[in-house]
Write a protein that binds this DNA or RNA. Sequence first.
DNA 1: CTGTTAGCGCTTTCAG
DNA 2: CTGAAAGCGCTAACAG
Lengths: 337, 337
Amino acid sequence: MITIKDIARIANVSPSTVSKALNARNDVSADTQRKIMQIAQEYNFMPSAYGRNLKNKTTESIGVIFCRESKPLSGNPFYSRVLEGIEGELALNNYNLVLHLLANNANNNLPKMIKEHQVDGVILVGTIQQEFIVELEQRDIPMVLVDPKTSRENISQILIDNEYGAFMAIKYLIEYGHKRIGFISGDLKRESFHQRLIGYKKALKLYNIPYDEDLIRAGDLEAGYEHTKHLLTLESKPTAIFATNDINAIYGYKAVKEAHLKIPEDISFIGFDDIDLAKMASPPLTTIRVYKEELGSIAVRNLLNIVKGEEDNKAVKILVPIRLIERDSVCSYEKLA
Amino acid sequence: MITIKDIARIANVSPSTVSKALNARNDVSADTQRKIMQIAQEYNFMPSAYGRNLKNKTTESIGVIFCRESKPLSGNPFYSRVLEGIEGELALNNYNLVLHLLANNANNNLPKMIKEHQVDGVILVGTIQQEFIVELEQRDIPMVLVDPKTSRENISQILIDNEYGAFMAIKYLIEYGHKRIGFISGDLKRESFHQRLIGYKKALKLYNIPYDEDLIRAGDLEAGYEHTKHLLTLESKPTAIFATNDINAIYGYKAVKEAHLKIPEDISFIGFDDIDLAKMASPPLTTIRVYKEELGSIAVRNLLNIVKGEEDNKAVKILVPIRLIERDSVCSYEKLA
DNA sequence: CTGTTAGCGCTTTCAG
DNA sequence: CTGAAAGCGCTAACAG
């Protein structure tokens, strides 16, 4: 491996001068600077991060941690997009992305990158065990949470505007004449789903539509099928269903088709997230789009601020806006008659 | 940050003794060893990888590179699974995973981790530009290719048994009585798809079924919709369609439904990959399962062998077996009549 | 068995 | 403007 010393020898200067030249310091003559750069070029030399980091006490790497059990990458395209957003922004800032999927049974077995100080900070995405977060706090690891499933003080968080998104979805359905609106969801213990329920309730209230517990079905992420099936057996069936995420909605489609009903003629659907699959479904799913890459890139920008100490490290909560994407899974209630 | 020196001071020994104790060398007395371990524990000390790596000329990190443009993570659950497989195996071996999505227009702007020697080796997954691979070769970066889209000498490759998988799929259809079998695919310039076409042809040949160019439609990954639509307009329509990947098949479903035909009663489908979506589709898609995590973990094991120099670095080609998963998208041709 | 010494590749004083 | 020297945290060779 070619080092700064080699370049120094070739250029007939000292290693420190080479270092200065490479880092474009102002205490090198333009001449030597040029000479050194040229030699570096010629020998295809790039300073190793090893030494620099050791000296600077920095790693130029950021850890990104997901919960392994939730199959975050393959199971949910949502998080993959967030990851792509994170990657892009880190690359832009010339940081490495160190990926780790945290096992539930990891207990106090921290990931290598944390134990061995190989990252300057971490981004925790989605469901993450409390104890793990606490552990990191104790070690003073700078961090940012993205779409956390449970709220936390004193840590910066990048959040989806869940409540308003749900509110918009329901308002949209109501304006299409729907009054009995089913709500199918993942576990309501999770902050984000819970907030979506609040948005649902607020919209109903605004239009003086009574809230009916029977229309609320929450549980497993993939239980959209069962939930929908159940809602279809209700005496007073819903005319529309709001799924707190697209995956749920797609599973819901399946139940509707099995019941030989049509979407949206017999029942309307609206989702949340706008994963790629949403537009591929038949009919294409009307849904609340979440800007997933943004969630990631904003997280990176915030974390880097903290890491570089460029800002007073106040924990912030940033709400990333959402948007309603109209497709073909909703029609007006009047048509149903 | 607490260092080996601090521990040494507290334990009243020299730093080297601490190092030895921590690394469980046999030239430390059991007593001091125990004492040091205990102090380390107490102070929650873990040696920093910085120094160790600088000394050992190793990084204990492996780079994993995808092509950014193909939206490898969010756009294709296939690669996400491969990534999960890679992550798991690396974690098991106590290596960091440094993720990078390679931009097409990156030209000779290599990723930071490569330029600055922050990884011991890399795994390249899927489509990767030739020039990039060549660049890495010139720099003697140990590497392994996973499901490469174009073949390469002298580099270890972990491959899907494309040909045999396609062969099995077609054989299965033929045994169900199908004779006119459509073939829809991504770009045939890609090795893997091309091999699947070879498998298709071989199966036809075995059963003396003529090969008909008209039934072959290749192009964009998401063009399954158009391809299927086109096949349905043929005078002598296929009774079954083999899609060289599940995504294509799912898009094909859409075209079939639009034509008010039913699967499998009117036309059978068989896919390739077995992504999660395959079983979610209606009807659930019969497909050739590829063991995606395996592709990843095998790649890691091979790369680590090379990196650790534990083996004669002969480039190998490993074929990961596939398996036919029967679901509900195929029925016998006789039924059609 | 233990400690001293040197050095991995780089940066940063500080003296010249 | 340049270079010598010291040191980041750790390991290894060698002497004691």
